Each structure stands twice: as structure tokens, then as C-alpha cells.
Simulated scan of single mutants.
Amino acid sequence: MDILVEQEVELHKYEIRQNKADRERLIHPHFSEVGKSGNSYDYSSIVEMMETEKPSSARVHSQNYECIQLEPSVQLLKYKSAIVDEAGEVSGYAKRCSIWVFTGTSWQLKYHQGTPCSPFKLEQV
């Protein structure tokens, strides 16, 4: 589970999202997502979105990771997230799930979903 959490957290970082090699390493070519907004994305639309992102002083906080093995090479990663701005204000609370698949050489994110949720207490890291 540790590698999946590490890779999920990597995808929260602007620098990783801007790097083509990192995106290709982490995101499966047949990726799909149902975003917190309810909008659907595929690999090309998520890459386009990442490429047009602007740097931000806000950060993604994530916690309560749980990993469920669906198959030996397929893992479901569940967690909670929130956005924390530079003043410490918290918003964008969501429950998230990601399906990671092992491609034979590495784990890649194949599916992701975010669902808005009620505010929760942030655990300190």
C-alpha cells in the first residue's frame, strides 16, 4: 500500500502534474475519472487540464488511506482530501477512491473518483 499512497500524493503536487514523464509513469493510458464536480475525464482531457494548471500556494491534504485488493494486480485506494490555502483555511472536502493497476513493471492510476463530503478534522502529519 505504501507505494500507492506515495504515488497518489505525488499526483497532488503541481510539479509532478506538470511533468510529462511523471504523468506517463503514474497515469494509465486508459485512465478515466468522475471528478468531484460530477464531470467525467479521460486520459487526454486530464492531461490537458494538468498542463493548463497554474501554480498555487494551496495544497492538497489527504488522510485515512485504506487499500483494498480487488485482484493481485488491482488495488482500490480510498481516502479523504481537502484543500488547505496558505492562510490555513480548509475547503474542498472530498472522499476519494482510486483504482491502481500493476502493469508488469509499475503501478498506474486507471480510475479515480472524488465525491464532496462534510468537513472533517484534519489529522496532522
Rank of each mutant, 00 (worst) to 15 (best):
G35M: 09
K20V: 06
D2P: 08
Q113D: 05
Y43R: 12
R96N: 04
T105D: 13
I83E: 06
E123W: 06
S44Q: 15
I27M: 12
E6Y: 10
G88P: 13
V101L: 12
E24W: 10
L4K: 12
H28E: 07
R59E: 03
K78Q: 10
S118Q: 15
R17D: 01
I83A: 06
T103G: 05
D42P: 12
Q113M: 05
M1L: 12
T115F: 05
P55Y: 00
V60Q: 07
V74F: 01
I16V: 15
S32W: 03
I3T: 11
Q18P: 12
Q18R: 15
C97K: 12
C117H: 06
E24R: 15
V5S: 06
E48V: 00
A94R: 11
R59H: 01
M1R: 14
A82K: 00
Q63E: 04
C97A: 14
G114F: 05
L76R: 13
N19T: 06
S62C: 04
S56R: 14
M50L: 11
I99Y: 06
K78S: 07
I27L: 13
E66K: 13
S56Q: 08
P72C: 02
S98G: 08
E33C: 15
P72L: 01
E71I: 01
K54H: 07
E8M: 10
H12T: 08
Y79W: 02
S45R: 08
R23S: 06
V90G: 01
S57K: 15
A94C: 15
N19R: 15
G104Q: 08
G88N: 12
G92E: 02
F31Q: 09
A94Y: 05
R96I: 00
S45M: 07
I83Q: 10
L11P: 14
H28I: 02
W107L: 08
E24Q: 15
D85W: 02
V84Y: 01
G35S: 15
V5D: 02
V74E: 03
T115W: 02
I3M: 08
Y41S: 13
N19D: 15
K95S: 10
V101Y: 03
P29Q: 07
R96F: 01
K54M: 07
Y79E: 04
L4C: 13
G104Y: 09
K13W: 03
H61K: 03
Y111N: 11
H30I: 01
Y111F: 10
Q108E: 09
R25T: 01
E51G: 07
L109M: 13
Q124C: 11
V5M: 08
V84R: 04
H112D: 07
S40Y: 07
Y111I: 07
K95M: 02
